[in-house]
Design a binder for these strands. Structure first.
Lengths: 158, 158
DNA sequence: GCAGATTAGGTTATAATGTTGCAATTCTAC
DNA sequence: GTAGAATTGCAACATTATAACCTAATCTGC
């Protein structure tokens, strides 16, 4: 499992790692990590909370980037395609992927209080997909799992 | 597991059962299944495809019901609270619950081609939540799992 | 280098989904 | 029947996402 964000960690390292992996992945795939794309990635990684596309617009504007919705959505789509960020569909928000490059079904826990989110690996994830395929005769192409609740800190505070 | 919709079935019976269960549940909980609420439930159950809130508006209008967004969303919220319908968050759409009354984590398979959706039970669902709680020290209050892919018919056609 | 193809970004407008706030009505319990 | 609660009507608005069309930058093969 990826590092548990609810424990102390050096967050600058998270961002640096993410950008550096992104660069490698783009190189490998022969696509371009343009300034806008990189900046969007960094902003998504600014903390461990899923961020809405429209939250990014003013921050890009501040830095002199163009900031119309299509600009941000294009950058996000690019990053999604490469698996560098994930979309939290229940929040209409985006978050950095902690292990890009690996093709994996994603599972996120999101704290409804503080908004922090943690990506999880779980063997049971693929069991569910396989079960559905066996029982229904379907083909599963994409799997979304999102857990909502309270993180350790917010649980304690309540 | 609930009936597999990809096999032949009498769909009128699906709707009747749903409405009749809704009536019982409302009685039991001391809440009112008003005409609008019942009609929205029936429309959601019109087929096994998740339906958008805005798709319901014109149909309600045809029948002389008020049809502004809040009307539909209020009815849907009511039905969601009682567990009579579920929300497919990745589609911004709603679908009838096949076993209301039971408190259960929901898992849906949705065909990306024809749009039909099937609710699934899976023991692994709660395993995932329990794992997250154990590993992260969190409390899981809600769990969303959605599988996208191809149903038997659409798989065959492709 | 240069021409043409490809990719990325700029701009404007609009679509799709969901919410707030308040007034009017209807129901329920006493 | 009357007060309080629940429900509905209504208008405006907020949020999220995409379409369409064009310009600019970059790459590729020569």
């Amino acid at each position: 499992m990826s590092q548990n964000i609810y424990k102390h960690h050096d967050h600058h390292a998270c961002i640096d790692t993410a950008v550096s992996r992104a660069r490698d992945l783009c190189q490998e795939k022969g696509v371009r990590l343009t300034p806008i794309r990189q900046r969007v990635l960094e902003l998504v990684w600014a903390n461990h909370k899923p961020v809405g596309a429209y939250d990014l617009l003013p921050r890009l504007a501040e830095e002199g980037f163009n900031s119309a919705p299509p600009t941000v959505y294009r950058a996000l789509d690019f990053l999604l395609d490469l698996g560098l960020v994930h979309r939290i569909t229940s929040l209409n928000a985006f978050i950095g992927c902690t292990h890009p490059g690996e093709d994996h079904p994603t599972c996120f826990f999101v704290c409804r209080q503080c908004g922090q989110a943690q990506e999880l690996d779980s063997a049971e994830m693929s069991d569910i997909a396989r079960q559905a395929e066996a029982r229904l005769g379907v083909v599963v192409e994409q799997q979304i799992t999102e857990l909502l609740g309270l993180c350790p800190a917010c649980k304690g505070a309540a």
